[in-house]
């Protein structure tokens, strides 16, 4: 059975641990990344299925991170979870090409359900 590869980018290791624990790792490979460059590299090397970015800063910094993460034919889903609630920033991120945006504090069940839906879609395709 194909184990899904999930990369979690966060500079705060506790938040990354929290999200990883919520997702659960029984049927998934979860890799933590501490820099956006490392995330891009991991995404390329490991063919990640899902990238969870726990900050909006790298996406609003002017570099086209989404394009870097979805190079060539490999197109991982990208979720962003952050504390930013400003409507304009969220809309801009969605326009940038991210698939889901969630704000902290998060509902554990909701995040799990979103990941499960993503899993199901992946399997069906």
């Amino acid at each position: 059975m194909h184990r899904r590869k999930i990369i979690i980018y966060s500079q705060d290791s506790f938040t990354a641990e929290l999200v990883a624990a919520i997702i659960g790792c029984t049927d998934k490979d979860i890799i933590h990344s501490h820099s956006i460059e490392q995330t891009e590299e991991l995404c390329r090397e490991r063919d990640a299925d899902l990238v969870i970015i726990l900050s909006t800063a790298p996406l609003l910094g002017g570099r086209n991170i989404i394009k870097q993460l979805r190079r060539e034919r490999h197109r991982p889903e990208i979720y962003v979870i952050s504390w930013r609630h400003a409507e304009q920033a969220i809309l801009s991120l969605l326009e940038c090409g991210i698939d889901q945006y969630m704000t902290f504090p998060i509902c554990m069940e909701r995040l799990k359900a979103k990941i499960a839906t993503n899993d199901r879609k992946e399997r069906e395709s």
Binding site: F14, T15, L18, P105, C107, M108
Partner: peptide, 10 residues
């Protein structure tokens, strides 16, 4: 504290 401040509905 960390879990409670980052989640809701628990």
């Amino acid at each position: 504290y960390f879990v409670r401040s980052h989640t809701y509905g628990i």
